[in-house]
Amino acid sequence: MPLIRNPKDFAAGLLFMAFGLAALVIARSYPLGTASRMGPGYFPRILGILLLGLGSLLSLSGCRSGGEPMSRWHWRPLSIVLLSVLVWGLAAQWLGLVVASLALVFVSSVASDEFGWREALLSGAIQAASMVAVFIYGLGVPLPVWPVFLGGGR
């Protein structure tokens, strides 16, 4: 019989323990106060201890009772989608909403196994235009429409 019988619970327990430990380490410089006049460090420490304690309980139970195996991790779609968001965040204030939105749609479309670049560009263009219509003209969101070095168009 394997040691870890419920890998999901076991790993989740470790994750919570890591959060708890990080909280305790960061919060060690926060004044603790007293139970009747709690300082800013009191509550975080309680939470950190709870995460550590209950997290280890969860990991332990992952060793004792069985559960379904962990499904495979697919980092590719996630990375591509989040990369497209990152690109938007880096580009928006400098290259403008149109370029950033087009780039986001194009890059994120790559994550699908049915990717077609013509379709992605076309749908990106339509969506970029509607973003400008809604957010810039409709809601007055402070973002340049076009690249700043071309005048920004706002």
Partner: peptide, 17 residues
């Protein structure tokens, strides 16, 4: 394949706003 990039875009712009 067309819907999810739109959701990502709206969520991203929404986060900014």
């Amino acid at each position: 394949r067309l819907l999810y990039p739109a959701i990502v875009l709206i969520c991203t712009v929404g986060s900014y706003t």
